[in-house]
Design a protein around this nucleic acid. Sequence first.
DNA 1: AAATAAGTTTAGGCAAAGCTAAACCTTTCT
DNA 2: AGAAAGGTTTAGCTTTGCCTAAACTTATTT
Lengths: 219, 219
Amino acid sequence: MNNHTESEENYIKALYHLGGEGAVASGALANRVGAKGPSATQAVRRLASKGLVEVIPYKGVKLTLDGLTLAKHILRKHRLWETFLVEKLGFGWEEVHPIAEQLEHIQSRELVEKLADYLDSPVHDPHGDPIPQADGKIPPATGKPLQKFSQGSSLKVVRVEDAGTDFFTQLDLLEISLGKEYTLTSVSSFDSSIQLQAEDGESFWLSHSMSSNIYAISL
Amino acid sequence: MNNHTESEENYIKALYHLGGEGAVASGALANRVGAKGPSATQAVRRLASKGLVEVIPYKGVKLTLDGLTLAKHILRKHRLWETFLVEKLGFGWEEVHPIAEQLEHIQSRELVEKLADYLDSPVHDPHGDPIPQADGKIPPATGKPLQKFSQGSSLKVVRVEDAGTDFFTQLDLLEISLGKEYTLTSVSSFDSSIQLQAEDGESFWLSHSMSSNIYAISL
DNA sequence: AAATAAGTTTAGGCAAAGCTAAACCTTTCT
DNA sequence: AGAAAGGTTTAGCTTTGCCTAAACTTATTT
Ligand SMILES: [Mn+2]
Ligand SMILES: [Mn+2]
Ligand SMILES: [Mn+2]
Ligand SMILES: [Mn+2]
């Protein structure tokens, strides 16, 4: 029930990411793990023989309960490690994903729980994504995209989408980070860009591509 | 020159462990990595094609300079992670080896150096083994086995051999740990067991099997 | 010097994981 | 309904990594 290869775990994680508990097309799966169609079909067969997925040929693949549990456990490890890398080792939030991609496959229950303790049982990772807990429960994903806010509202940034290195670099340039508070001072009806005013009075414009990947809660 | 599989790295590490810069027989190598002879022969051919080892058929295998550098880097990672697990996460020194065996394969130069910084650039791991430094230099292995000391000498434990879980359990039972100081009060000429007296006055006997895996320096 | 023992390599398999090209379903369009 | 398009699976091949049995070297013993 336990020992899985790195490849298997990556397929499981992809399945979870794409479909949650629902069915996923083999093409999408292949795409997500960076493989070609036939490789995914085959991989999925191996997973099925281990009881981690259910397959309906030509229709789609779906995680079983065991598969779902595994997926959440891997995600837990991934996000705990990202938290460690940022909080303890001083990495930037744009650097940690590829390293966590490796660390998420380390197998040791004790390690995961000791790491969680060491980090004070965090509920969100450095990007604001919820960390699945040891019991499998997942804290709700908080915040809504900036465009959903109306002019004049006060908000706090709580999460950002992983939209690539350039996105993070831009966030750093604008000194946007989790926990920061702003007032939405203006919305362009031309290109949907928005203007934020920071607490120190400075204000700046954000393109739609930027703001759609930034999530906040209203204050 | 860089990307190596976990299996490759394990062979490299084994080669270093068994022979350092010298030649190693394929049987011993196979034995060390937990494989059979033919698997080692084949693995070694793959390593040779990558320039990491030199082979003389029927004679032995030897690390090249590249191979040696890689071996030391892996060992560095292994021992840094062990240090992290004990110092930061609170693992016992008997638990960390198998986990470090996985962590040593994580690939990220930046991670290794950030981890080393975080641990204050340690020179020895939790078992007292020297940690290869970023420049490839290896601090000298300190201490000599307890039997090498003569009756009456004062000593400090600085290193223990990894002689399996039971050995560590016994050390914990006797409350022996790195840095502890003792006086060697007696040596049995019958079975080479020795008697140590701790600083608090308590004294106890150590079998030859125990003492031969414990290293100390004289005070 | 020849025979035996011990250790190493070759030969032939197998599973995981990937690929391309070809065959096969499904869905959609005419 | 029939045909074209799009996506999925099958077929056949490759590399890594490990295995057993058989052949081959080297070292040791008589
Ligand atoms: Mn991530
Ligand atoms: Mn991964
Ligand atoms: Mn170790
Ligand atoms: Mn290893």
